Amino acid sequence: MVKKRQILVIGHNTNGCTPEHEKIAYDVGVEIAKSGSVLISGGLGGVMTASAHGAKDAGGLTVGIIPQDDASEANEFCDVVIPTGMGLTRDFLNALSADGVIIVGGGSGTLSETCAAYMNKKPMVAIRNLNGPVMQYIDGYLDHRKNVKIIGVDTAQEAVKKILELITA
């Protein structure tokens, strides 16, 4: 049996998530499902809900790793819910569970997950022009270590294609 690829989608929670973010995240979820990969997210609102919704609509498998200790806190599109009870520390579980990461906008929580993925040399792709603190690092590195470049793309389709290339490289 071959292990399925696991792609983490991160970005704005409900606060700050625009219809543009939701549309792109939904499309990312669809593309992840079409690739036969598992979508992982933080399991809550905004980009997390939209990406899981897209994956579910396309027949994919979704996993939500939530900061709460009650599985009922996850969005309705999570097939598997992992209630950590760890608060924001769960960002590290999200990053370590992924083979690659797709970034759709986001705030400080997204930056935290990005840093965790960066320190663990996880391939990352970010959608350009969606605001947020990660945007300044697109096509560059978070710091002098140059652990992994955050590759910028313009569409959901490009994001999934590129992350799959990076995972298999």
Rank of each mutant, 00 (worst) to 15 (best):
M1A: 14
K3H: 11
K4Y: 07
R5Y: 02
R5H: 09
R5G: 00
I7P: 03
L8Y: 05
L8G: 10
L8P: 05
I10A: 02
I10M: 06
G11A: 08
H12C: 12
N13R: 09
T14Q: 13
N15A: 08
G16T: 03
C17M: 06
C17V: 10
C17L: 02
T18S: 15
T18W: 00
T18D: 01
T18V: 10
T18N: 03
P19M: 09
P19I: 12
E22F: 01
E22G: 05
A25S: 10
Y26A: 07
G29D: 09
G29H: 09
G29E: 14
V30W: 00
G36T: 12
S37P: 05
V38N: 09
V38D: 05
S41C: 10
S41E: 05
L44T: 04
L44S: 04
L44W: 03
L44V: 07
G45E: 05
G46V: 06
V47P: 14
V47K: 10
V47W: 10
V47Y: 13
V47C: 13
T49R: 13
H53S: 09
G54F: 06
A58S: 02
T62Y: 07
T62N: 09
V63L: 09
G64Y: 08
I66D: 08
Q68M: 03
D69A: 13
D70C: 01
D70T: 01
D70F: 03
A71R: 14
A71Q: 09
S72N: 12
E73F: 13
A74W: 10
A74N: 12
E76H: 10
D79F: 00
D79Y: 01
V81K: 08
V81T: 11
I82M: 06
G85C: 06
L88Q: 14
T89A: 09
T89W: 03
R90C: 08
D91F: 04
D91K: 06
D91E: 11
F92D: 06
L93T: 11
A98Y: 03
D99E: 10
I102Y: 06
I103V: 15
V104L: 03
G105D: 13
G105I: 11
G107M: 01
G107V: 01
S108E: 02
G109T: 02
G109P: 07
G109V: 02
T110F: 01
L111F: 15
C115P: 04
A116F: 15
Y118G: 12
K122I: 13
P123K: 07
M124R: 08
V125M: 04
V125R: 02
A126Q: 03
R128N: 05
R128E: 07
R128K: 15
N129R: 11
P133N: 14
V134F: 00
V134D: 08
Q136G: 04
Q136R: 14
Q136N: 15
Q136Y: 00
I138N: 00
D139I: 00
G140V: 07
G140S: 15
Y141E: 09
Y141K: 04
L142Q: 05
L142W: 05
L142V: 11
D143V: 12
D143C: 05
H144T: 08
R145Y: 13
N147E: 10
I150M: 01
I151S: 00
G152H: 05
G152R: 05
V153L: 01
V153F: 00
A156R: 00
E158K: 14
A159Y: 04
A159C: 02
V160H: 06
K162R: 13
I163K: 12
L164Q: 15
E165N: 04
E165G: 04
E165Y: 03
L166E: 15
T168D: 15
T168L: 05
